[in-house]
Structure formats: structure tokens, C-alpha cells
Design a protein around this nucleic acid. Structure first.
Length: 548
RNA sequence: AGGGUUGUCGCCAAGCGGUAAGGCACAGGGUUUUGAUCCCUGCAUCCAAAGGUUCGAAUCCUUUCAGCCCUGCCA
């Protein structure tokens, strides 16, 4: 009893966003009738912004026990391809959402949509227009001036029927004729000024080939697709608010008797993120110019890039959940995403030791012939437990973890200073070895046996702990150091940082590569000191298996 | 003769007439086998601005200001 009560109070604390409120108002006790859809146009790869829509639509369906369709809005053959369809399906699946039996294509409705257009023509609500694109624009008016009616607006129904049929048959050239809805050329809402609903294109469609040369426009097609599929709530981004009256107009006037319920369009704000390029155009440019290795380059915020970088679906879903849904267009800081990654990874990823800029340390008082394993604990929140890591007389430490002439708040190794080697012993730097150029090539240190980790030694404290890898057993691995692709420049064109990717060889603990779980690590800690000028704040992928 | 939409902490975001949730970021302290994690603590007398209604307003009314979207045969 008590537990259910506390559970309930806990649940009520979780606030509902406005879309959930609309759904519950509209559907009442039948929220399980909720039908949403994620409707990408297959003209590019998905990015973190799309993830939000995927999470919203599929998540809502899951929450209410409704359904969510994956529908490809492929009504413009000039931009779409199967490659993108495959990629998008792969991404949605990877995100963990199921669209089995719920996969649809707008192109499958072409005939049905054509029939709907006939209904509109027969009702006197659509007409074939001969105006050129330039003229259409002229006639449309402007923000402050009403438009003019097309001279072809009053063609008879018979003539419209004949002309539209001929358009379909391919009797006209591209741009020669369009089918337009007859609404209101004086409306302050420009999307209502007799919008074009069919245009002629002879580019073959990736699915329907050359079966069609007329294609429906988004404003006409989308509401009808929703209605055909019985979508109850059509969620889209805020720039479509102006199109909502048009959306309703088509659903209303096509008046298809099989529409169980009129779909309702609800808009929410698109999300932007700092240090992120999401524009398709810019993304494509980076890929085409070879600035990145592909759509899955780990510096990109495409779903595939994030995935390759080591993000899990859980991280992305958590991010969507944390940032929420609203009508306020905002820019989320990249920190929020990174926080989700850290939070989730810390409870399931190994904390391994990897040295990227090695500095050899010889522990002069360590027995030459001794081999020893040291116990390394993983984060207590994981069920990964601990593991044994070989230690030795010669080890690599991170070059940045030693400073000959340290600033005041440097907690790591210094000449004569003492630090803990993570999981092992305290070592004290006795001698700095340099080459003829004066470069530091190695360190001679001494260790103190009684300071071994786990023995409960409390004799003295040390300010810092550093990571290390035993020279003899270290595994060489390719490591990619990178940053996000970005600069302070506000124009996306220039947001490319040439130094954002660096290939390095790192020394890593042995046997770690056997762990499939280790694909990713935020190696932030251990590599930097805050407020230290010498700090490097790398994120890195430890590419041990050449598989992502 | 423009229309639409949004304005709550540095960033997201609750709030829906009863006296400003939460997360991120940041700052300080404690624990500590990396300065991570973990644990405390602090962080909007104020909700774009100004008036008004009310015992009482971020929430209602009025006006003003700012951002974003709309004149593709793209979606």
C-alpha cells in the first residue's frame, strides 16, 4: 500500500508536456488509440535533432500503448534515394524502436492521392494552372500585399479533369502546368494563397520509377498520408504552424469516408545544439569535400557519427528526455549531451588505462625479475567488478602528468614529488633523464612497497593519482583524438576545425581488447588538470577492434 | 494589409490566480585507488518591459519591446 502510494506521488512529479496533455484531452480514456508517425524524407542521414522526433513519436506510442509508424515522405524524386531509406531504417532500429508492420511510404499512396485530387477538382476546389513559376510568385503577392487570382482559376471542372489527366499522361513539360488548390489569394497566411499541390517532374523516382511524372507537394500529401494511416496526432516542428490551416483544409475537403478520425497537427520546437552542425547542406559539404571520413565520422552529430563515437541509444534517449519538449526554440549546450553520456557510461563502461603521450618511468628499486598483478576497481556503480593488471619495473605514464617546473596547483609528478600510480604504489621522482637536446626522455623513480593500494596504508598522503601502463605488457592501439567540428565562427560554412581529429598510437592495458563492452571511453579525467594551461581535454575513441 | 509564433537563472525546462520544481553549467566544502565518481552547500525577492484587475499575478486584461517562422512547381 505504502509503496504504491509513494510510487504514485513519484510519478505525478514527472511533468507532462503540452503534447501529452493534448493527447489525453483528445483521446480521453482511449489513449491507447494514439497513432503517431516519424515521417522523414529520405534525402539525408539522421542527426541528433531527428533523434528528438523519433524519441517523441515512438516514445509516446510506447507510453500510451498506441502505435507509431515509420513513414518515408518521399514525394520529391529529385532528392531521395534508397541509400537514405536504408540508413534511416538502420538508425531507427539502432535507437531501439520497432516499426515492424508499421513501415510505410508516401509513394505507395500516389494513386490514392491522385484520386483525392480528382475529388478536389470535382468539388471545384482545385484547378490546373498554366502560370510559370515566376508568374506564380508574382501573383502570390507579398507579406504586405494580397495576391492576385490566376487567370486559369475559373476553368471548368471538365477542363480541369481533362488537363490534370493529361498532366499525368506526360503531355506537358516540367513547369508548364500545376494543379493548385483554390483557397484564398488574399489570405494573410501566404500558404493559403492557392498553393500548388501537384507539379510535373520527369526525374525517375527511386521507388516508383517512371510510373509518375506528377508528384504531390508536401502540404497536400502530408495530411492525406496521416489520414490514410489513421494517425491521430501528427507532430511536426514549429515552422509548420502556418501550414496547419492548410493541413486541416485538405483533410476536411477530401472528406474521405474511410478516415476514422481526423488527424491533428501539433507543433513543437526544433532543437539546436552548441558545437554542432546539423544542416544537411553543411553536413553533405563536409562529407563531399572529404573533410570528414563519412556520414559516420565521430566528430559529427549524425546518429551514425554518435554511434561510432561510442554513444549508446540509451544515452541519446536520456538526452531527449532530459531536454524535454516545448514550443520555445532553444540551443542546448553540448554539455547536456556529454553529461548524459558520462552518467550512463559510468555505470556500464570499464575504466581502462591508456597512455597517449608516453613518458617512460623506471622504478629503480623495483626487483628486476618480479612480475606482479595489481587490482583495479571499476566504477562501483557498474557490475564490472575488478580486474588484474600487470605492473612492472618499467611503466609508461602520460607525459603531461610530469612537470619539471610545475605551477602551484599541479597535483601530479614533479622532481622529488610523490604520486600514486592508480591501483598500485606511490612513486617518487628521483631523476629526470634528458637527451642532448634537453628533452625529457624518461624518469627514474623509486616506489614504496608499503603504499600498495588496497592495503589500507595511511602513513602519508599524496596529492595526485596518475594512470600508467606497464611497458612489457602494454598493447599498442590506434587511438583517435578528436573534438567536435566547430569554430567560434557563426557561419556553418566555416565551422570546420582542421585539427579536430588526430590519429595516435596509445599504450593500453593488455587483455582489455577481449572485452566487447569496451568500445568507448571518456578519458577526460586523467588527461587534464582544470585551469592548467597545459591541459588537454580530449575525448577519445579507443579503437581496439576496428569495429564500432 | 501583413500574418503566425515564442519570451521564467549562463543553457534546457516545470509552473495554468495562492506567494519561483528539476537537470546541465558554475562556485565552495567533504570522501577518494587521477583533479573523475560519490556526498553535502550555494546559485531568479523574481518570471521581456510598463500599466491595470485582485486580499493575492509568472499565471487574467491592456499596451510596448525583442527573437524566430512564412512570398519553393522543397519538406
Amino acid at each position: 500500500m505504502e509503496t504504491t502510494e509513494t510510487k504514485e506521488t513519484m510519478e505525478t512529479k514527472e511533468t507532462k508536456h503540452f503534447i501529452q496533455e493534448h493527447i489525453e484531452q483528445d483521446l480521453g480514456t482511449e489513449t491507447n488509440k494514439l497513432a503517431t508517425r516519424f515521417p522523414p524524407e529520405p534525402n539525408g542521414h539522421l542527426h541528433i535533432g531527428h533523434a528528438k522526433s523519433i524519441h517523441l513519436n515512438f516514445g509516446l506510442a510506447l507510453q500510451y500503448g498506441g502505435t507509431c509508424n515509420l513513414r518515408f515522405d518521399d514525394t520529391d524524386p529529385t532528392k531521395e534515394s534508397q541509400e537514405y531509406v536504408d540508413s534511416i531504417m538502420d538508425d531507427v532500429q539502432w535507437m531501439g524502436f520497432d516499426f515492424h508492420n508499421k513501415l510505410f511510404f508516401a509513394s505507395d499512396y500516389f494513386e490514392q492521392m491522385y484520386q483525392f485530387a480528382l475529388i478536389l477538382i470535382n468539388k471545384g476546389l482545385a484547378f490546373v494552372c498554366d502560370l510559370t513559376p515566376e508568374q506564380v510568385q508574382e501573383y502570390r503577392g507579398s507579406y504586405t500585399e494580397p495576391g492576385k487570382e490566376s487567370p486559369y482559376r475559373n476553368r471548368t471542372i471538365e477542363e480541369n479533369l481533362k488537363l490534370f489527366a493529361e498532366m499525368r499522361e506526360g503531355k506537358y513539360k516540367e513547369g508548364e502546368k500545376t494543379l493548385r488548390a483554390k483557397i484564398d489569394m488574399t489570405s494573410p497566411n501566404i500558404s493559403l494563397r492557392d498553393p500548388v499541390i501537384y507539379r510535373i517532374t520527369y526525374v525517375p523516382h527511386y521507388r516508383t520509377g517512371s510510373s509518375w511524372c506528377i508528384y504531390p507537394m508536401y502540404d497536400y500529401a502530408h495530411p492525406l498520408e496521416d489520414a490514410i494511416e489513421g494517425i491521430t496526432h501528427s507532430l511536426c516542428s514549429i515552422e509548420f504552424v502556418n501550414n496547419r490551416p492548410l493541413y486541416d483544409w485538405f483533410v476536411e475537403n477530401v472528406n474521405y469516408s474511410k478516415f476514422e478520425r481526423k488527424p491533428r497537427q501539433i507543433e513543437f520546437a526544433k532543437m539546436q545544439m552548441t558545437n554542432t552542425i546539423m544542416g544537411k547542406r553543411y553536413l553533405k559539404k563536409l562529407v563531399d569535400e572529404g573533410k570528414v571520413s563519412g556520414w559516420d565520422d565521430p566528430r559529427l552529430h549524425t546518429i551514425k557519427g554518435l554511434r561510432r563515437r561510442g554513444y549508446t541509444p540509451e544515452i541519446i534517449k536520456e538526452f531527449c528526455h532530459q531536454t524535454g519538449i516545448s514550443k520555445t526554440g532553444g540551443i542546448v549546450e553540448i554539455h547536456t549531451l556529454e553529461n548524459c553520456a558520462r552518467n550512463i557510461l559510468k555505470s556500464q563502461a570499464y575504466s581502462i588505462m591508456a597512455v597517449i603521450n608516453p613518458l617512460k618511468v623506471t622504478i629503480t628499486n623495483y626487483p628486476t625479475d618480479q612480475t606482479e598483478y595489481v587490482t583495479l576497481e571499476n566504477n562501483a556503480e557498474t557490475d564490472l567488478g575488478s580486474r588484474q593488471v600487470p605492473f612492472g619495473r618499467e611503466i609508461y605514464i602520460e607525459a603531461e602528468d610530469f612537470m619539471e617546473d610545475p605551477p602551484k596547483k599541479f597535483f601530479r609528478l614533479t622532481p622529488g614529488g610523490e604520486v600514486r600510480l592508480k591501483g598500485a604504489y606511490f612513486i617518487k621522482c628521483q631523476e629526470v633523464i634528458k637527451d642532448s637536446q634537453g628533452n625529457i626522455t624518461g624518469l627514474n623513480c623509486t616506489y614504496d612497497v608499503q603504499t600498495k593500494s588496497g592495503t589500507g596504508f595511511t602513513g602519508r598522503k599524496v596529492k595526485g593519482t596518475i594512470h600508467w601502463v606497464a611497458v612489457e605488457t602494454a598493447v599498442k592501439a590506434t587511438v583517435q583524438l578528436f573534438d567536435y567540428i566547430t569554430t567560434e565562427d557563426s557561419t556553418e560554412d566555416n565551422r570546420f576545425n582542421e585539427n579536430s581529429m588526430e590519429q595516435k598510437t596509445a599504450y593500453i592495458e593488455p587483455e582489455i581488447e577481449q572485452s566487447a563492452a569496451l568500445q568507448f571511453q571518456f578519458l577526460r579525467h586523467g588527461y587534464f588538470a582544470k585551469d592548467n594551461v597545459l591541459a588537454k581535454t580530449y575525448n577519445c575513441i579507443v579503437n581496439l577492434k576496428s569495429t564500432y
